[in-house]
């Protein structure tokens, strides 16, 4: 007889439900079964109405983020074998985002915040293509390399209680990416990105809970990025204050 595991899956069908509820499924257990495999097994063999997002199955597309036993996880990178001692595994849609259906979250709030911080190389004067690439040493690249590993999965937003409290907070992913470009030797856009870092909805909504960095599947450490952003914003505040005292405009 095959051993099975109980997987409790959150369901929300906007046509008939007013609030999410939980449905239990028995899934045949195997050592190499990921949560994503289990969800696909349920959808293919047991209930085709279950909705969940996935694509690459190898922790690079960032689309399969869910809460597994109350922790934000990529379902493809999380295995049932790690929950053996628990009576059941509970899978919910990511915290802090609106739920479209079942396990499908609407992460557009996060995507909008990403665009806000202009996460691309900003140059005061664009070089013609014929001039070649902007050179960079390995040491210069090392300064932002970790922050550039983000796959936009949104786990850090599900982990952040300040984003949960106020969705206007730009949040860990967007602020880490802002820092990634601010620390890039080829970028000249730090000054114009400061206005978003300086805002209450910028780095100053963060209280260094640090859970965003714990759950990040790519070790980006957004909490470190935001708090280095606080130092930068702090200095920017002092410089602006000095400029005002010298008679310049408030920036």
């Amino acid at each position: 007889m095959t051993e099975t595991v109980t997987v409790r899956v959150q369901r929300y069908r906007p046509e008939e439900d007013t609030a999410p509820w939980e449905q239990s499924f028995e899934v045949p257990y195997s050592e190499d079964l990921s949560i994503l495999d289990a969800l696909n097994q349920i959808k293919d063999q047991q209930d085709p109405t279950l909705s969940h997002r996935w694509s690459c199955r190898m922790a690079i597309c960032g689309s399969c983020g869910v809460m597994v036993n109350n922790e934000p996880k990529l379902s493809c990178k999380t295995f049932l074998r790690d929950y053996r001692e628990q009576a059941a595994v509970t899978v919910r849609a990511l915290d802090n985002f609106p739920i479209e259906r079942d396990l499908v979250s609407d992460i557009s709030g996060f995507i909008d915040h990403l665009e806000t911080v202009q996460p691309w190389l900003i140059r005061s004067e664009e070089q013609p293509v014929s001039a070649g690439a902007y050179p960079q040493t390995p040491e210069q690249m090392q300064r932002y390399a970790a922050f550039s590993q983000c796959i936009n999965c949104g786990l850090c937003y599900a982990a952040c209680p300040q984003f949960g409290r106020d969705p206007a907070f730009l949040g860990p992913g967007a602020l880490a990416l802002a820092q990634r470009y601010n620390l890039d030797s080829r970028d000249e856009g730090a000054a114009q990105r400061m206005q978003w870092l300086n805002a209450g909805e910028g780095v100053w909504s963060c209280t260094f809970v640090g859970y965003c960095s714990e759950v990040c599947p790519k070790d980006v450490d957004p909490a470190a990025a935001i708090n280095r952003g606080k130092v930068a914003s702090d200095i920017n505040y002092a410089v602006n204050l000095l400029n005002i005292l010298r008679g310049k405009d408030d920036a």
């Binding site: 906007p14 046509e15 922790e71 849609a93 802090n96 949960g164 809970v209 859970y211």
Partner: peptide
Amino acid sequence: MHKPYIQRQRADWWLRNPAYRRYM
């Protein structure tokens, strides 16, 4: 049909995860 379910943070959010309890 577009009727997203909005998840609101509960006042006891910090009791629900060991990482949040350590923070508090």
